[in-house]
Design a binder for these strands. Structure first.
Lengths: 201, 201
DNA sequence: CTCATTTTATACCGTTTCGTACAAAATTAA
DNA sequence: TTAATTTTGTACGAAACGGTATAAAATGAG
């Protein structure tokens, strides 16, 4: 690992490689993705992959971590945009949809919720990463409802922790539903209707 | 395939074998489960597995289908028990928890939502099975809210289709959260609080 | 120009994978 | 008892897997 100095210069960009690796993990899941798949997607030979990021699980964790930082950061910015609780919340979900719909062949939902969850039952480190990501989302949503209550947008009888967990459930459902691809499911309509129900006093 | 007649009698029970196969798929996911794993779990040699159920994907689909029939049937019975919408709904989720918590090592959530969803992006037949299962749950929940409205338990202004999809989101969230195993997550508390919010006029 | 250093790329190793061929075993029909 | 039929269990084969040893290639330092 050297940014400069003696030696043959590396031909890859670490961040781009992790992004390309995520794409294949996202489509096929962790177990069904081979190092050859990652090698083809990144253009890096297997020994280079190993030297740069470690073994397959390590590559997976690093690519998921990168996704979490970028994606959750973007979602949180929308959630705390300050356009009122209803608007912020609707925009929060709508901001996730383009990512959940992405994919060359078909929509793939959320890479974290849809691929890491499987591994969580047999791999404790991935389970830890995943639980931390869930905690992070829960915390952000609860905090947003607390802020709304402080701003007088919610009655004093409202319970932000309950609303936050309910709002998180909406995101989980969207994350898997977009990958399940039921015919006739209207994501935007579902988002607006559900947020309306949640905020109904 | 013969129930009686000439030939060496089979030593396995098809239903029990599919149940044992589901256990390993449930813990490790489809891709990470080998035919040797299934062979060990069922006590059937690989050629017998192949003769009885077909290839790995066929075994998976049959075992998931058996789970869906049994589990969803059980949940629907609770949902339509007729003890009032709030009780029925709470009991619906609570009835799912023992299954979601089951597992020798750790809780494994829902086998359908947590393992089939990964494959849905690359396998169209599994995607079709999965979408049908989701449609089924959606339909049952929406029907239950329609019934509640007809029974006068919900105001005329309520929209059963919206409430049903919101209630389905709760189940999806529970199904993955039980496998994610966040510290401090209280499932029963979450269920009661969320149902209370949903039914809050 | 020479040498130390770092990355690349080929090739290999042992293991595991899915699927099947084949003979032995166990039953019923004749 | 003999023959036909079905399941079982061993054993095999080709392919794919994760991971690594090793030499060639490409740079900077001296």
């Amino acid at each position: 690992m050297s940014t400069k100095g003696r030696g043959r210069p590396r031909t890859y960009d670490s961040d781009a490689a992790l992004g390309a690796a995520l794409e294949v993990f996202w489509e096929r899941g962790f177990a069904a993705t081979s190092l050859d798949d990652i090698s083809a997607a990144t253009g890096m030979a297997r020994p280079s992959l190993y030297a740069a990021f470690g073994n397959k699980k390590s590559i997976y964790r690093k690519s998921i971590d990168k996704f979490n930082r970028e994606f959750l950061g973007q979602l949180e910015a929308v959630l705390f945009a300050g356009t009122g609780i209803e608007n912020d919340l609707v925009n929060f979900y709508l901001a996730a949809l383009p990512t959940y719909r992405s994919g060359d062949r078909v929509a793939r939902g959320c890479p974290v919720i849809c691929t890491a969850t499987v591994e969580a039952a047999v791999d404790d480190t991935i389970q830890g990463d995943l639980a931390a990501a869930f905690d992070h989302i829960d915390g952000a949503l609860v905090a947003r409802f607390e802020q709304a209550q402080a701003d007088g947008e919610l009655p004093g009888s409202a319970v932000p922790s309950r609303l936050g967990m309910l709002a998180a459930a909406l995101l989980h459902s969207l994350a898997v539903r977009m990958r399940v691809r039921q015919k006739g499911f209207q994501a935007e309509q579902f988002v607006r209707a559900s947020v309306g129900e949640i905020l109904k006093t």
